[in-house]
């Protein structure tokens, strides 16, 4: 199933997020990632989410969201040219013998070691969602102790 990246500008009111999530989950669809933050206009929040589903499912989802009183604009970016990024903080098991290897790997992915512990490293990475996925796959054999991902954020690109 294709993963759709949907962005929405919404009124910064209490309850808006619950309503949006309700519209989507109430129809049995899953939100894989979700990110909300204010925009240049403090009254408006921007929300980015990844929802897997076929075109018709996603067309219904965007129409339903558009109908909501607090939703100003909804775009399914998957239909357009767009940029996406995800931020990840990952703590990975790093016995002294493996450290150099891990640091080299992080380097290849333009990731940075942001904290060093006795037996682990914490690495920060910002990249496109696929690249974040690839990086985490490569870390898995070292044993990931903890990971926090921001969820995808995205903006459309003008032609």
């Amino acid at each position: 199933m294709k993963k759709h990246v949907i962005t929405a500008s919404v009124e910064n009111h209490p309850g808006v997020l619950a309503r949006i999530v309700g519209i989507i989950s109430g129809r049995g669809y899953n939100i894989e990632t979700l990110n909300v933050a204010p925009t240049q206009d403090p009254q408006v929040s921007r929300l980015t989410m990844q929802v897997p589903g076929d075109e018709r499912v996603l067309e219904q989802v965007t129409k339903q969201l558009n109908k909501m009183v607090d939703v100003i604009k909804v775009t399914d970016l998957t239909q357009k040219r767009y940029l996406n990024r995800e931020l990840v903080l990952v703590e990975v098991n790093a016995p002294s013998g493996k450290r150099a290897e891990l640091i080299a790997l992080a380097d290849v992915f333009d990731a940075r070691v942001v904290s060093v512990q006795k037996k682990s490293l914490t690495i920060q990475m910002v990249a496109e969602r696929e690249r974040v996925g690839d990086f985490l796959d490569l870390l898995r054999p070292y044993t990931i102790i903890d990971v926090s991902r921001s969820g995808v954020i995205a903006v459309a690109r003008a032609d």
Binding site: P14, G15, A18, R19, G22, G26, M68, V69
Partner: peptide
């Protein structure tokens, strides 16, 4: 109440 009725109203408000 706004939580319970969210899925059965066109819109709802909790007045703060």
């Amino acid at each position: 109440t706004t939580g319970i009725t969210r899925a059965v109203t066109k819109h709802n408000y909790l007045v703060h």
